[in-house]
Computed example of a mutant assay.
Amino acid sequence: MTNALRVLAPVALALAVAGCSLSGLLGGGKTPATLLTLTPEAADPGSIARTANAGQAVTIAVPAVAKEIRSNRVPVQVSPTDVQYVKDLQWVDTPDKLFADLVAETIRRTTGRVVLGSKQSALDPGLVVNGELQQFGYNAQTGQVVVQYDATLSTEGGTRVEARRFTANVPADGTNLTVGPALNRAANQVAADVARWIGG
């Protein structure tokens, strides 16, 4: 082996190992056969045509989330200090965006409100629903998925602000076969509760 090869061989090996490690950290492993999304359980009313006076529309903002939730993977709370992820289970998008879409669609289907997304709020935000998605995963200690949403409801200009915590728990066994459907059910329970809170 030449001197040049003796120098380059360890460097190449280090780069290869680093590449493998980085791939693991970024979730570069095998992609699951299917990807998970949230689907509304409220009945679809079909075509909708609505109008709203100033301040009567509802704007649904994308909630803030913790780092372990801001991922396409589903977190498992093994202990208060240990977070892992459900094997072979991934979202099509991050849960904060999927949850905001679900809440908006549930309000649209179950109330008479005009519902806007964050990008449409320049028209007239009306009531603004914001908040933090505190939990959105599986708790191995209780054997349940948990969806916990700390929501705020404010009028335009902040003349009135309300806050409320919504929580739903649904049993699951920790596998990708049960955690996905359970999370969808729990998210729908919270979305329905938010819709009733807003009313209209």
Rank of each mutant, 00 (worst) to 15 (best):
Q189A: 10
V17H: 11
L123R: 06
A43R: 04
D93Q: 15
D88R: 05
V147K: 12
V17K: 14
V190T: 04
A33F: 14
R50F: 01
A33N: 15
V58T: 02
G131P: 00
R196M: 10
R70C: 04
A122W: 11
R70W: 14
T142I: 12
Q90S: 04
D124S: 05
Q141C: 05
V17Y: 13
D93E: 14
S121R: 08
N184P: 03
P171R: 12
Q84I: 07
A195Y: 07
T81N: 02
G174M: 04
A33Q: 13
L25R: 14
T152F: 02
G28N: 14
M1K: 09
G126P: 04
V170T: 01
N169I: 08
K119M: 06
K30F: 04
A9Q: 10
T94S: 03
L153V: 03
F166G: 01
T59E: 03
Q84F: 05
W91R: 02
G158E: 15
T152K: 00
T51E: 03
E132N: 10
A54I: 04
G157L: 13
T34I: 06
A54Q: 02
V145P: 05
A163V: 02
L8A: 01
A61Y: 00
L127C: 05
I60Y: 02
P40H: 09
L183E: 13
K87Y: 11
P40Y: 11
I60E: 02
L36P: 12
I198C: 10
N3E: 11
T110Y: 09
T2A: 04
G29C: 06
V103E: 03
F136W: 14
A163I: 02
G29M: 10
K87I: 12
E132F: 03
V76S: 06
N53Y: 01
N139Q: 06
I69W: 12
A43S: 12
P171F: 06
A52I: 09
S23C: 05
A18Y: 09
L183K: 07
A64N: 11
G143E: 10
E156M: 05
S121Q: 09
P10T: 02
K30R: 11
G117T: 12
G131S: 00
G199P: 10
